[in-house]
Amino acid sequence: MTKKWTGVFPAVTTKMTQDGNVDLTATQSSIHRLIKAGVSGVIVLPMLGENASLTLAERESVIRAAAEVTKGKVPLLSGLAETNLSAAKANAKLYETVGAQGLMVFPSLGYKTDDRETAEWYKGIASASSLPIMIYNNPITYGVDVTPAVLKQLVDTPEIVCVKEETGDIRRVTDTYIELGDRFSVFCGVDDLIVESSALGVTGWVSGMTNVWPAECVEIFSLCAQEKFAEARKLYHILTPSFHLDTHVKLVQYIKLAENLVYGAPEWTRAPRMPLVGPEREHVVTTVNAAITALDRRDRKAA
Rank of each mutant, 00 (worst) to 15 (best):
E280Y: 04
G41S: 13
S242F: 03
A88Y: 02
T25M: 07
I63S: 08
T147F: 08
L200D: 07
V42P: 07
E231Q: 05
G181M: 14
V206T: 05
P148L: 15
S78N: 08
V186Q: 00
S242H: 01
A37N: 14
K228A: 05
R33C: 03
T247I: 05
T55W: 09
G181P: 04
W205Q: 11
Q28H: 12
D23T: 02
I31N: 06
A258P: 04
T70P: 03
P46M: 09
L24G: 03
F187W: 10
G41Y: 14
V39S: 00
L109S: 04
K234L: 08
L85H: 09
A232K: 08
L223Q: 11
W5D: 01
G201V: 05
N51H: 15
G201C: 01
A11Q: 07
I135P: 07
A225Y: 06
E166R: 07
S198R: 10
M104Y: 07
G49Y: 10
Q253I: 06
A26Y: 11
T14C: 11
L131F: 03
V277L: 11
L239N: 10
G201A: 04
V98E: 06
G208Y: 06
R233Q: 07
I140V: 04
D169F: 06
E231P: 02
Y95Q: 03
I220T: 01
F187C: 01
K228N: 02
D296I: 14
D23G: 05
L200F: 13
V249Q: 09
A11T: 04
T286N: 13
W5R: 07
G102W: 03
D115W: 09
P107F: 14
T157H: 05
A88R: 09
A126H: 08
P139Y: 07
K3Q: 13
D19K: 07
I292Q: 01
Y254R: 09
E259R: 00
T27K: 10
V69P: 11
A302W: 15
V12K: 13
P132A: 01
L34Y: 10
E267C: 06
E82L: 01
Y122N: 06
V146P: 03
N21D: 12
Q226M: 12
N21S: 09
T118K: 09
P148I: 14
K36Y: 15
A232R: 05
A11F: 04
L77Y: 12
G38V: 14
T157E: 13
V146A: 10
G49K: 05
S207K: 10
R233G: 02
C162E: 15
A199T: 15
S53F: 04
R64L: 15
R300I: 04
G208E: 05
Y136E: 00
R171S: 00
C224G: 05
S207W: 11
P241K: 02
A258N: 09
E58D: 12
T293L: 03
L223G: 06
E60I: 14
S108F: 12
E60M: 11
V42K: 07
Y177F: 11
E227W: 14
T167K: 04
R298T: 06
T25R: 09
K112V: 00
T203L: 13
Y263P: 01
H283I: 10
I220H: 08
K36A: 15
E280V: 13
P266A: 04
E58Q: 13
G181V: 15
M47H: 02
N289M: 14
G181F: 15
